[in-house]
């Protein structure tokens, strides 16, 4: 038996010094080193921890350019069994709606024989911070959704339920959920672990399955990539800075005067 787990990982640029193509408003990826979105790595670790405890299999899916293959090999180093890369020019330029469509259809395809019990997503991707793809896939697959999971407390294979902790603004919510389900993960859900040597060796020769826009999944072409993305970048601009005010050097005016200035201002503003 065991648990059939799926993890969606996204390739993201490893820097904030990203350049933008001013005409299209899209990211210039050349020359920017790429990493697995950090939250997704924690999600992957959580899936691998489930496999260790209950047996089963971990499948990793990523939609991205061919270069994302190396990240899938990294996922194998960490303990993934099967990896799938969705790569095609027709997928490019997808917003979260098109991305969730592309992923959901591929996941349906992969689940034909053995359905997934747990579908892991990162809480959000650090390049866009949108946090929409996980909930989007859950909606498309009609699966229960639990977001911001920081701990998997327990899993019952008999009743097909699990107890999860969610990290919310005002505290921790503990929920019981039926699976199959989609969860989006906080970093706390699992620690990064060191890849065992056998995995490193296996990863070297690992080849991800590659799915295109035409094979093996049957997609509606109008729902893919830029075409299938309702949102358009209307314009990009650099934010205007607010005006600065007075500035003093403390070595010139002295500490007491500096403190005077702060206190005066706090009084004026009615704070003191």
């Amino acid at each position: 038996m065991g648990l059939e787990c799926l993890v969606c990982i996204k390739m993201v640029p490893d820097t904030t010094n990203i350049r933008i193509n001013p005409e299209t408003g899209t990211l210039i990826r050349e020359g920017v080193p790429s990493i697995i979105n950090p939250y997704d790595l924690h999600a992957l670790e959580a899936a691998i921890a489930l496999k260790k405890e209950y047996g089963g299999r971990v499948t990793v899916v990523s939609m991205g350019p061919p270069g994302a293959k190396t990240l899938l090999q990294e996922a194998v180093e960490q303990g993934a069994d099967r990896t799938v890369l969705l790569s095609d020019r027709k997928f490019a330029g997808a917003d979260t709606l098109a991305t969730s469509y592309t992923l959901a259809r591929a996941i349906e395809y992969l689940a034909r024989e053995t359905p997934f019990d747990f579908l892991f997503f990162g809480k959000q991707a650090i390049d866009g911070d949108t946090a929409q793809v996980g909930p989007g896939v859950a909606t498309r697959l009609h699966l229960p959704l639990v977001t911001y999971v920081q701990q998997i407390r327990s899993v019952s294979l008999e009743s097909k339920t699990c107890v999860l902790e969610r990290k919310l603004e005002e505290g921790i919510e503990v929920v019981e959920a039926r699976f199959p389900l989609v969860l989006t993960c906080e970093k706390e859900i699992a620690r990064e672990s060191f890849a065992p040597l056998v995995n490193l060796i296996r990863a070297k020769t690992h080849e991800p399955l590659v799915f295109s826009a035409s094979e093996p999944v049957a997609y509606e072409p109008g729902k893919l990539g830029l075409k299938g993305s309702p949102t358009r970048v209307h314009k990009v601009f650099t934010p205007e800075l607010r005006q600065s005010g007075e500035k003093y050097k403390v070595e010139e005016i002295g500490v007491e005067k500096a403190v005077d200035l702060i206190v005066e201002k706090l009084r004026e503003l009615g704070i003191l």
């Binding site: 600065s244 500035k247 050097k249």
Partner: peptide, 11 residues
């Protein structure tokens, strides 16, 4: 300092 209303350069 480019956005501060009151900027104090010091320790």
């Amino acid at each position: 300092f480019s956005i501060a209303d009151l900027g104090l350069v010091g320790d």
